[in-house]
Amino acid sequence: MLKLDKLTRRFGDNLAVSDANLTIPDGQMVGIIGRSGAGKSTLLRLLNRLIDPSDGQILFGDNDIARLKGKELRAWRSDCAMIFQQFNLVGRLDVVTNVLTGRLHDMPAWRTVAQVFTPRERAFAIQALDRLGMAHTALQRAETLSGGQQQRVAIARALAQEPKILLADEPIASLDPMNAKVVMDALRDINRQDGITVICNLHTLDTARSYCDRIVGMQDGRIVFDGTPDLLTNAMAREIYGAEAEEAFNEAATSTAIPTSEPVPARVPA
């Protein structure tokens, strides 16, 4: 069980995440929605500790994740895999080595430096790739793949970590609708089959509604909605998305295109 207690992150005077309280039981698939700049991405990065919280606690079991340092911090990151909007693969390495980097944490130092992977690790990486239907690209350079293929490799890398939690930061925002569906299906499959908790930032409401057990709405760094998809009324969603509502409701329009400029807010934020 993952529990956030008064989690806060400041950037200068700006509160990116403010006083977030959330309890996520194991095996849940959670969608976090909100307009751009609402703090969704910061929240996910706080969970993986890519950025440090200014205040508050992140409890996983009895561990306070927010206080981890050094070796324990790296162990947490390897337990808590992350998928990025821009995939963040190592473009010039081949696909199977990219997936094998998911094993780095459990390898002795000399093997990581010498880039020596055991046959068992290689077989495991190929199995992970195969599950995403990408095993045939194992020896290609990652940068030669399309965006959708790269995201599937990134998910295979996450699987190679044998994570307890899978975080996905706008995993489909750079993909076309078909690839977006493949990626979201894969995430749901991992959640259902393996019982891994999936926490996913989504810009589009429809995707969140159709894939997630639970939806968390964020606005200006605060959690303003938390409940099952059927509790999320259209009025509530409009409130969360504000001026970006029309865009967010129309999945076909947004999941294919990367959002360009921030529209002028139609109302004064509370």
Binding site: I126, A135, L139, D194
Partner: peptide, 24 residues
Amino acid sequence: MRMASIDTVDAGQIAAVRATHPRA
């Protein structure tokens, strides 16, 4: 298909993967 843990990958599975993806 459920992903098994790496510890359950046995010699048989390695051999099977090796047979289908020898160049990996």
